[in-house]
């Protein structure tokens, strides 16, 4: 059973979502990866206002391919979220309510998600062509010099994700593999 969720996400929605839920996400998301996060962290260090009001928003960790003529965006699947772990708690504290990426998060990120109410969705890594079809519009809103790593505002429609870590800290990367773990005798 798939849940349809609209962004931005309020705290009631965060509470309603549980690890393992299959979700079709629609609405505005911000696309940012390593270099844009580093820039955002530097702006916060300098006490400057951020290019976006992050409260209730969702960041999608991705760096798309260039769009061909007639395309909204090129292939755009999730990148490894763990590289953004150094930055995520600070943004969650400022009100970031959702992240989309792939792979595990560290204990600091999960603790911060529990403290402030945020959810981490995973999309299937390596499905950038399929996911690009769920992006209906996008524009670069900051750091254009970063190329594929620029900060983008995008509108997504029925973007398929799974709740990987919910607001209570339940982690599919822990529970999922335990369920299917088998001991294979290495004779």
């Amino acid at each position: 059973m798939q849940k349809k969720i609209e962004t931005p996400i309020d705290q009631d929605t965060v509470k309603r979502l549980s690890t393992g839920d299959s979700v079709l996400l629609s609405g505005i998301v911000f696309i940012a990866r390593d270099a844009a996060h580093k820039k955002i962290a530097e702006m916060l260090d300098r006490g400057e206002p951020l290019p976006i009001d992050i409260r209730g928003q969702v960041i999608y960790y991705a760096g798309p391919c260039p769009a061909k003529p007639g395309q909204v965006i090129g292939s755009c699947g999730p990148t490894t979220s763990g590289r953004m772990d150094a930055y995520a708690p600070r943004l969650i504290k400022l009100g970031l309510a959702g992240m989309i990426g792939k792979g595990t998060r560290n204990t600091e990120v999960i603790a911060s998600m529990k403290d402030h109410g945020a959810v981490y969705f995973c999309a299937v890594g390596g499905t950038g062509a399929l996911l690009a079809k769920c992006i209906v519009s996008q524009e670069v809103i900051a750091f254009p010099e970063l190329g594929t790593e620029a900060l983008r505002k995008a509108e997504i429609k029925d973007f398929p994700v799974i709740v990987a870590i919910d607001g209570r800290g339940n982690d599919i990367y822990e529970t999922g593999r335990l369920r299917y773990k088998k001991t294979v005798c290495d004779a």
Binding site: A62, G63, P64, C65, K68, Q71, G74, S75, C76, G77, T79, V124, G125, G126, T127, G128, A129, L130, A132, K133, T148, P160
Partner: peptide, 21 residues
């Protein structure tokens, strides 16, 4: 299934199967 569908979209539309080319 998503991975398989993705490979079909990539082939028929001649777009990269993954953004990390």
């Amino acid at each position: 299934k998503q991975i398989k569908t993705n490979s079909e979209i990539a082939f028929f539309e001649q777009m990269p199967m993954c953004q990390d080319t």
